[in-house]
Amino acid sequence: MKKILLACAMIMATVVAQAQTVVEDRVIDGESIRYVTERLSCEDLTALLAFVHVDVTLYEGKEGAIEISYPLAERPYINYGVENYEGKKALIIGRNGYVNIPKKTLLSEKVPIYVRVSASQLKRISGHMDTMLRIESDKFADDLVLQNGLVMAVVTESITALNSLTIRNHGTMTCHVKEWNTANVEVYNNGYLYMHGATTAKSIAFVSAKEGINDVCLDVDCDVLNVVSQGKGVLRYRGKANDVNVSARGKHCTIYTSELNW
């Protein structure tokens, strides 16, 4: 009888464990790839750091719910979890042996790790490979930092961080964002940045480094607009600004402020 009860308990434990893991086939470009989905939770998540190709969706659900789907073949190499980062909780996703012992990988911009997160207090989202960021739930901490190390695409109607919104781009970043809702915008561009939209920020600071290439067009209504550019491309600001300071040292950067009412 004891053995039967023990066997039943072990079977139940296996069933519960498997309930947290789902395996499914995804068809990508006609090829079927087996993905495994695992779930975890962290109620006070404040950061997301990705060191691999990811497709991230921020949605509104149970606070702290996290879902990660990755190719089953990558299972021996994938590392992810919630870690302490700068005194807060961060979801970190990486891959073993990436730097010192490169291994062949399925992961690419077409075969990413899919991440779904329901968290309303994110302060930092940082991608170091190819990051697709889909924002379905526009709820963040009062101060938000978006950081791109290689390739990042942001798709959403709006991003709201009441106090400040900082963008640090060191690669190729395309922001399909219609509204940037915040009191202060700070952008540092050392790569290629596409940023069109509108912001009600009262203070806007834009710095384009020598390697920066800009395709920026912002509708503004601000007190202070500071622009420093050593890079290339086009920076266009329209709307209203009480105080405008522009410093352009790059030969190939065009800065338009003529459509501003000062």
Binding site: M129, M132, T172
Partner: peptide
């Protein structure tokens, strides 16, 4: 991309991915 852009390898790597802005 993670193998490059460091002084040790003397390399510069740039990448861009064009996506459909609606579907990604």
């Amino acid at each position: 991309g993670d193998l490059y852009n460091n002084k040790k390898s003397n390399t510069t790597f740039r990448m861009a991915v064009k996506r459909d802005p609606v579907t990604g």
